[in-house]
Design a protein around this nucleic acid. Structure first.
Lengths: 185, 185
DNA sequence: CTTGGCATGTAACGAGTTACATGATTTG
DNA sequence: CAAATCATGTAACTCGTTACATGCCAAG
């Protein structure tokens, strides 16, 4: 929960945005559904760590744009050097791999191909986001004092991880094709 | 939850074990605390997907060894080709990276080094587990019809992922050392 | 002699998801 | 003209963690 709250602050520190926009950016660090962030935003506003500007819109409900306050930035900076955070990973697909010996090879091949496609799709998305960032931010991307640097290096990490996942699928698939051709390690 | 339950079944399909032993093996697929598995084991036993042999022990509470039933194997095999499972990742460290521009470089360097060490430690653990597996199972490790194959390829994947995480930390650290020497991509 | 691992569980609480409610605008 | 995306939120429910309870054995 703590990490979840500070992820919102970290996102708002880089750029103001609506609850909906925040929700989309969360995925890179902390997966969640948009519902969860509404009550937190209220709480953060009460604690003066963020503030909200309401933009009236015709037809739609008002758009609420949240921004971080100086206090918010301080709270965030104070949290960062705190206790070590263990990453949480839960992946049902891996249980399926664990149980693969009970299944026919065709099912497993299909499963692995589906997974590979999933990551290939993600890779495409992240590649275009990086290209966008490069176009927008230019050289500041590689400057640790720029607010874009963090997102940039996280995107690069995600991309590499997804490439690895995809490579691993290819490697695993080779075992079912009788000819293990791909080197992995 | 569903994936969680089937992960238990997948582990028991490979090898019988106590609740405690299951809990330790869960980490590779689905991180959880041991408390959560006790009520599930009761439920699975009621549904005849697993059965339990109680071994009396002096001093300690009885050791309960759980094994999968034929019905359990069938249920597991039926689940595998089911709906695609999206992996869940939540990592507070990444939020810290997101917010890095608000912090002094020293803090970030320390954070990255700590993270790197964490993964290096995990790599060591998994390497010795793989060596153990290779010694125990030999050639059957690379045979998709062996019950060890699944765990083997999952361990290889974990190892690669952790190596990547560690490499990424080194890459990110280079930005703070003025000389980005490491190639990543 | 204390920390950590082995070993099993329950109860209370906090975190996270699903379903529901509502409605405009854009894309296929 | 249906589905997806933008957009905001509440309520009910399920999932997951922490705290508690108990006790042995081995290593440092």
């Amino acid at each position: 929960m703590e990490s979840f709250v500070y992820t919102i602050l970290a996102i708002l520190a880089r750029d103001s945005g609506s609850s909906f926009e925040i929700a989309k950016k969360m995925d890179l660090c902390w997966q969640t559904k948009h519902n969860q962030i509404y009550p937190i935003l209220v709480e953060l506003e009460e604690r003066d760590l963020i503030f909200c500007t309401t933009i009236p819109q015709s037809g739609k409900p008002d758009k609420k744009v949240f921004s971080i306050t100086e206090q918010g930035k301080e709270a965030l900076a104070k949290w960062v050097p705190n206790v070590f955070q263990e990453p949480i990973i839960r992946d049902g697909f891996l249980a399926k791999i664990y149980a693969q010996w009970l299944l026919d090879p065709d099912t497993m091949v299909q499963l692995l191909e589906e997974r590979m496609q999933f990551f290939q799709h993600k890779i495409g998305e992240h590649e275009s986001e990086i290209a966008q960032l490069e176009a927008d931010a230019g050289a500041s991307l590689k400057d640790p004092s720029s607010p874009h640097f963090g997102r940039y290096i996280l995107l690069m990490r995600k991309l590499q991880m997804e490439q690895d996942e995809s490579d691993w699928c290819a490697w695993a698939l080779a075992f079912y094709q009788k000819e293990p051709i791909i080197q992995y390690e």
